[in-house]
């Protein structure tokens, strides 16, 4: 494998209290590339055949191209754009799941990703076991979880179902449990990717309340959503990414209006 001798991508996660005045998220000239062909080769046999034929696809696709923005502490920022524009990739870079190919990313503070609720759920296990497992994956220690356990159960409103295997839960109940675990973290930065439409109306209101509570505490929000109403309600600022490039960055109403107009004009 060829070594990447490009500029080393820099990631750092430093505690927030030491650098209060600096932006909490700093993206400077971030570039992200994926190999296009990698998905196609799954086996060693295939690899050798294609290797001998010289048919290994090494074309790269830029998912993010020179993205730069700063987010201040306490800000709520929406990321909008079409499917595949690079929104989720941006969130993954903020979380630290992906490292940028080029450019530097600085994140100051702990990040709570609400990217996929209940991704770590084991449906054979009981709800209680899942709270501990999923909580561990989100980075909590066992002691923290023991303290938080009651809050999580209360928030999810699933008191009577804690010893029931998750496979007997309805999908709404699973989502509620997932949200209850993910939200109970007191994070500096909360990443939300299309997960707010969870549960019934009551529960949704409860989530909205919890989010505004966190906002008051000074948490920073990064939201990815296709629902303009939700974005306008939650954020003051929006970043529009289109075709892996940053198109616009500014107040949420202005950017959303531009985006909606662009969508209307590009309908086929």
């Amino acid at each position: 494998m060829k070594k990447n001798k490009k500029e080393e991508a820099v990631m750092s996660h430093a505690p927030v209290e030491t650098q209060e005045e600096l932006p909490i998220i700093e993206f400077s000239d971030v570039e992200m590339e994926f190999y296009m062909g990698t998905e196609k080769i799954d086996g060693l046999k295939e690899f050798f055949i294609k290797f001998i034929k010289g048919k290994i696809d090494r074309t790269k696709k830029k998912v993010l191209d020179g993205i730069s923005f700063n987010v201040k502490k306490g800000e709520s920022v929406a990321i909008i754009g079409h499917n595949g524009a690079g929104k989720s990739t941006t969130l993954k870079i903020i979380t630290g799941i992906l490292k940028p190919t080029k450019g530097s990313v600085k994140v100051r503070g702990n990040v709570a990703p609400l990217l996929n609720l209940g991704a770590g759920f084991d449906f054979e296990a009981t709800a209680k076991e899942n709270i501990y497992l999923n909580g561990a994956i989100l980075g909590h220690s066992k002691k923290e979880l023991e303290k938080k356990y009651n809050d999580i159960v209360e928030f999810s409103e699933l008191h009577d179902y804690m010893n029931v295997p998750l496979k007997n839960f309805s999908s709404g109940m699973v989502a509620r449990l997932g949200f209850a675990i993910a939200i109970d973290v007191d994070p500096d930065i909360l990443l939300i990717d299309e997960v707010l439409a969870v549960g019934d109306e009551n529960f949704r209101q409860k989530c909205a309340k919890k989010i505004s509570e966190l906002k008051e505490k000074g948490a920073t929000f990064i939201v990815v959503s296709h629902s303009m109403g939700q974005i306008k309600q939650l954020c003051q600022r929006a970043i529009w990414i289109e075709n892996s490039k940053l198109v616009a960055d500014g107040p949420v109403d202005e950017i959303c209006a531009k985006y909606e107009e662009y969508c209307r004009n590009n309908k086929h």
Partner: peptide
């Protein structure tokens, strides 16, 4: 900061591994 990060990572991973082994 570097060492506190390592410590945090260790505690986090210890709990994940523990839970996964149990499962």
């Amino acid at each position: 900061i570097f060492f506190s990060n390592i410590k945090r990572e260790f505690i986090k991973n210890k709990n994940i591994v523990g839970q996964l082994v149990k499962r």
